[in-house]
Amino acid sequence: MTSQLPLADIEPTIENQPFWDALRDNRIDLPYCQRCRSFVWYPRAICPLCHQGGLTWRTLPGTGHVYSQTVVTKGTGRWKDAGPYVVAYVQLDSGIDSVDGPRILTNIVGDNALNVSIGSFVCSVVDRSDDANRFILRFALA
């Protein structure tokens, strides 16, 4: 799926390269701290709860629900003429009992995206450029 929203060149770092490698293959992989039983958001090498490294990468199911959202009528910069579009915080399902997924910033895309409301169930979408060199994690209403 490709929305019409802007895509940017991503410059992965050594800390977050596995996230982008997995996303290219349509998976959401995040660092997970087994000591804290917590995913780490945004992806990095050190758990901010116990301040230690040694994190493992785990795949999340790619589903979640909307924590909050806004329909932006008029964006700025490269997004100046992209509106109306939806910016949202999505609470990801973790796929692990009694572990919450992180709330992450994203867009809701798709023909019915403007129908979004808090609590809406969503599924992940890897939004790609035509040549697939640019891609990013967005969501569509489930």
């Binding site: 940017a8 770092t13 958001w41 997004w79 910016v87 949202a88």
Partner: peptide, 27 residues
């Protein structure tokens, strides 16, 4: 910034961030 590619590519203007706070407060 370490978060830049996880936040800056969604068209979240300053007002959009505060709008999400307002929407959640209303909810």
């Amino acid at each position: 910034s370490p978060e830049v590619h996880f936040e800056n590519h969604f068209g979240m203007s300053i007002v959009a961030g505060y709008a999400m706070a307002a929407r959640r407060h209303m909810h």
